[in-house]
Simulated assay, not measured.
Amino acid sequence: MSVKNQGENRRTSIGSQRNPASEEAILKAAQDILLEGGLPAFSIEAVARRAKAGKPTIYRWWPSKAALLLDVYHRQKDGVPHPDTGDIRKDLSQFLAGLLGFWRDGGGAIFRSIIAEAQSDPTALQALQAYAMSRCRQSGVILQRGQARGEVRADIDPALLIELFSSFAWNRLLTSRLDVSRDEIEQIVSAVVDGVALRNQPRQ
């Protein structure tokens, strides 16, 4: 293939402003590579080849591999709901079931790749930390609504408490045990919402 034809087949960008068609092609290429070959197959070079985009364009829009990985994940995760049924137990159960289901349906493979990248890349670790804190704050709205309804103590930090549910989900993801039953989810939710200590038992 001639240099001219390579240039004609390559998608054009418009500087620092993202071209929607090129952005979609890059994100889809990155997603497909991760799903097909996992993190070992993922590189900016591989994404550029599949998307027919220039590496400088990718690096201009995503300054690191971790940033691109997180954007690919965000692209899928927008569908995970923060339900508002009027009942804190139902809201938390549906949230946890939705997250585990999303990971089971393919999103988990990408998120595991992000976590793996963060173990050896400080930039990826910082990005993952920022993402995790941001998601806990966003998902904490479920508990904030419970506080407003008088179901949850006012002194509870919603972001901190939602991290308990995220920790359970992360553990299941990293140990490939995402087939969690409804009864198990409800048991986890009840244990957190109701507590596990027996009533009126003296402290030792």
Rank of each mutant, 00 (worst) to 15 (best):
A124T: 07
D91R: 06
V152Y: 09
R11G: 01
N200D: 14
S120M: 06
A169C: 13
Y73D: 09
L99G: 02
F95S: 04
E184D: 15
G106A: 08
L128Q: 07
V196S: 10
L198V: 04
G86D: 09
S113Y: 05
D157K: 11
I156C: 06
W61P: 00
A29K: 03
S64Y: 03
A159W: 08
E117P: 02
Y131K: 03
A169K: 10
S181Y: 12
Q129F: 05
L34K: 09
A67R: 09
Y73A: 14
F42T: 01
G79N: 02
L70R: 14
N19Q: 02
R203C: 01
E151A: 15
R18M: 07
C136E: 13
G107M: 06
Q147R: 13
G195H: 04
V189F: 05
L99F: 03
Q147D: 11
P56Y: 00
P81A: 05
W170E: 12
R182M: 13
G106K: 12
D121V: 03
S166H: 14
A118C: 11
A116Y: 06
F42C: 05
L173M: 06
R135V: 07
G140N: 09
A124P: 12
E117N: 08
A154D: 14
P158L: 11
L160R: 11
I188D: 02
L128T: 08
V196F: 10
A148T: 15
K4F: 04
L173W: 09
S93R: 05
L198Y: 06
R18H: 01
V141T: 14
S16G: 09
I14E: 06
R112Y: 13
D155L: 12
Q31I: 00
E45T: 13
S13C: 04
Y59W: 12
Q201P: 00
I26M: 01
N9K: 08
V192D: 01
V47I: 03
W103C: 14
G101D: 11
Q129N: 15
S166P: 00
A132H: 08
T57C: 00
T85D: 03
S93C: 06
L161Y: 03
